[in-house]
């Protein structure tokens, strides 16, 4: 990345390495960390060593802020959002914050409205509807 001054997630300027990296939604991280927690407790003689504060705080946080709990719903959310040509970063912000209106979605992820992306309000509305359906049937 050329300099920290230029970082701006609202314009999707987060550095190439992160733009290409796989971002994870809170609900996905919750599944990973819960599984990991069980694993560490089973395999280690002294699990307290390997469960760091960072791990604990993150687990608490993602459990509290996961909009979707059920693993099938989590998979569906990613699948739905993947249909809309979003960057990984945008996909996860939307999946985490679950905006209810088109206006709110654009406020949370302004980059989806930048020129040439082809996300008109109707497409965004359809995406939000699809997401709320997953929540309803979870």
């Amino acid at each position: 990345m050329s300099g920290e001054e230029e970082e701006n997630a609202a314009e999707l300027k987060i550095g190439d390495e992160f733009l290409k990296a796989k971002c994870l939604m809170n609900c996905e991280v919750a599944l990973i960390l819960e599984h990991k927690y069980e694993q560490l407790q089973q395999m280690s003689d002294d699990p307290t060593n390997q469960i760091s504060q960072v791990f604990e705080k993150s687990l608490q946080y993602v459990k509290r802020f996961s909009r979707y709990k059920n693993p099938d719903a989590v998979r569906q959310v990613r699948e739905i959002l993947s249909r809309y040509q979003l960057a990984e970063f945008e996909l996860c912000v939307l999946g985490n914050l679950c905006p209810e209106t088109v206006e709110e979605a654009i406020a949370m992820v302004p980059s989806i409205k930048t020129k040439g992306r082809g996300h008109d309000d109707e497409a965004i509305e359809k995406m939000l509807n699809d997401l709320s359906l997953v929540k309803k049937f979870e």
Partner: peptide
């Protein structure tokens, strides 16, 4: 990691 311009809770 947190990024400038990101919306968080």
């Amino acid at each position: 990691k947190i990024f400038r311009g990101e919306v968080i809770q």
